[in-house]
Each structure stands twice: as structure tokens, then as C-alpha cells.
């Protein structure tokens, strides 16, 4: 279970939070002018990144505040926590070596160092 550093409350168990998915998807300001495809892009299409992903979390059983989290989805490491409206930070992350592969360490999916 993750340990999340709520920017308002401090470190709390993941059970207190809910994840709102990919961050920095802004609701379009001009919906009537968008095509069905463009609307679908906003509504449904997601990057679903393996590696460093920016996402929204809500301290739903706490202060109920939304904030952004930079998390490596290949290892579940949380690299940064920042406020809504802030730009995503530039971060070094322990990304997978090949696109569908695993990072050097941390995914837990390969337990041995090969020769």
C-alpha cells in the first residue's frame, strides 16, 4: 500500500485517498466547436504511461483536497506531490529499459540480476 504525502495533511495511508487518473487534461473551453473525435479524446483517451506519470489524487477520507502526484507506474514510486494548477516538475525517473519491459529495479517483476 502506498504512502502518500498529502500537501495539506502530510503522509497518510493510501486507503484515505482516491486516484482521479491522468493529470493536466483540461476540460475544453469550447465544447460546441469540437468534433466527436475531439470530445472523445478529452473524455476517454488516456496516455496510460508505463513509467513516469502525472496524475490527480484526492484526499477523499481526509481534507478532500485534490492535488497532483508524479508517480512511476512501473515501480509505484511517488516522486513528487504538487498543487492543482502547478506545472508538472521535471524529474529523473527509474523508467523501464525497454518500452514494455521493466526498470532496472523496483517493479518486482524480475527478482534476479542476470549474468
Amino acid at each position: 500500500m502506498l504512502l502518500i504525502n498529502c500537501p495539506y495533511c502530510g503522509e497518510r495511508e493510501q486507503e484515505e485517498f482516491s486516484c482521479g487518473g491522468e493529470a493536466h487534461i483540461e476540460r475544453p473551453k469550447n465544447p460546441p466547436e469540437l468534433s466527436d473525435d475531439q470530445w472523445a479524446d478529452y473524455l476517454f483517451l488516456r496516455q496510460n504511461i508505463k513509467g513516469l506519470q502525472f496524475e490527480r489524487w484526492n484526499h477523499s477520507f481526509g481534507c478532500r483536497q485534490w492535488f497532483n502526484v508524479a508517480r512511476n507506474t512501473a515501480t509505484d514510486e511517488i516522486l513528487a506531490v504538487y498543487h492543482m494548477g502547478e506545472k508538472p516538475p521535471k524529474l529523473e525517473s527509474n523508467d523501464p529499459i525497454t518500452p514494455c519491459g521493466e526498470p532496472k529495479i523496483g517493479s518486482g517483476n524480475f527478482s534476479t540480476s542476470k549474468k
Binding site: 500500500m1 486516484c19 507506474t73 509505484d76 517493479s107
Partner: peptide
Amino acid sequence: DGYNSYTQRGGFN
């Protein structure tokens, strides 16, 4: 689990 992950691990809760 309620979040994206590629680790084949989830929360014990």
C-alpha cells in the same frame, strides 16, 4: 486497485 500500475502488485486493503 484505483490507480494505474504496471507492477502486477496492488494494495492489501
